[in-house]
Amino acid sequence: MSGPLRWSAAAPEHGGPDAMGAALHDFSTNSNACGPCPGALHAVRAADATRYPDPAYTALREGLGAFHGVAPRRIVLAGGASEFIHRITALAVQKGCVQVALPAHSYGDYAQAAQARGLALARAGEAGAGLAGLAGLQWACDPSSPLGRPDPAAHVWHAPADGGVPGVLRVLDCAYAPLRLEGPGAWTGRPATTPAHCWQVWTPNKALGLTGVRAAYAVAPAGAEGQVDTLVALAPSWPLGAHGVALLQAWLDPAVQQWVVGSLATLRDWKARQLALCAGLGWAVRAGSQANYFCARPDGGPDPQSLAERLAGLRGQGIKLRDCTSFGLPGHVRLGVLPPASQQALLQAWGR
């Protein structure tokens, strides 16, 4: 009899459930720990899974367009952010792109999608310097992942004098914009102004605490309707199922947005407690996170192998943290903000 199925060593690393199932106290994802949002959960459970969605997603695109103040023609639906990352990378290749510019530390699928297509990578320094201006595809994430800081590239793109770069695709990952807890741009229930010359990718499942529903959408910059047509042509039929449609429709409900905004106050309190807990353990926290997650070096920075062993020990006790080695931060962990009971479990388990 064959052994258990294992992922290839080349498979992207993610937080969340693993071969052991779901951790009782899962700090490894950035999902809203106040969730699931009751209104969104009800909508997903009530979705009619006996029928195909409208293949053009007419009503949903109209609603999302109104939410962002753009024409429905500029909305592209996707089966999750990762699916869109691969699809827009394919579009960049069609346009002759040979190099992709990435933040200093970023979500691994940006690089994985580029490398799968033979594209070179140009990675910025931590201050944002060094992004290749001639890279045909440029990524930014604000707040950034895994550090939760403002993205320097996004700051440049916001500058009034910035008019974009002809022939270059810029993509701003807004995954954590609704979970910004501090600083300018904290979520109010409506998207703030974003750079005019870039794409925006939105994944509301994180803010709604429903990451198991794979659904996302992108907002195209003005004048990019031809690129929208190409991206739609690159997609399979029905990239969203009925549950994904229900989630994104719920995202537009004012009551759901009110819940998201209300959850931020709770997350701020839990984050302050969690930061204090890490400081009490002697962990070196990377400063500057404005989101519902942050990075730290446990015990001031054990070597990566020792840290991996300790994280495996925690996993055996039902606690999971995200090793940041794949983000280019060996010796660090990323911790999503969890309730005080989970924080206490971490404190006790780490002591053991």
Rank of each mutant, 00 (worst) to 15 (best):
L314F: 04
P160E: 05
T193D: 08
P204A: 10
T194R: 15
G262M: 04
P178W: 01
A235M: 08
A235N: 03
S237I: 13
L147D: 08
T230D: 11
T230M: 15
Y176R: 11
R117S: 11
A92W: 00
G212C: 09
R6C: 08
A11V: 11
L102S: 04
A291L: 02
A113F: 05
R180N: 13
W251I: 06
G331T: 02
I85F: 14
D18R: 08
C278W: 04
G118N: 07
T211D: 15
L281N: 03
W350E: 01
W187L: 07
P4Q: 13
C198N: 05
G39Q: 06
A78K: 00
W251F: 15
C295P: 10
D303N: 14
G280V: 10
W259K: 06
S144L: 09
D303F: 08
H14W: 15
A242E: 10
R51K: 14
G280R: 04
A59G: 09
L64N: 00
P72F: 09
A296R: 02
Q138G: 01
Q344R: 12
H14E: 13
G163P: 00
L60P: 00
C295L: 11
W270P: 00
E182N: 12
N205C: 15
Q344M: 08
P254S: 09
L329Y: 14
E62M: 08
V100K: 02
D109C: 12
L24T: 13
W187D: 04
C97F: 06
P195W: 00
A43L: 09
V70G: 04
D142I: 05
G128N: 05
Q343M: 06
L210W: 01
L181Q: 03
V232F: 08
A78D: 08
H243L: 14
S82G: 10
A175D: 10
L329V: 09
D162K: 06
A101V: 01
L172G: 03
A233V: 11
S28Q: 07
A116W: 15
T194L: 15
G328T: 08
Q290L: 15
A222Y: 03
L121N: 05
F294L: 14
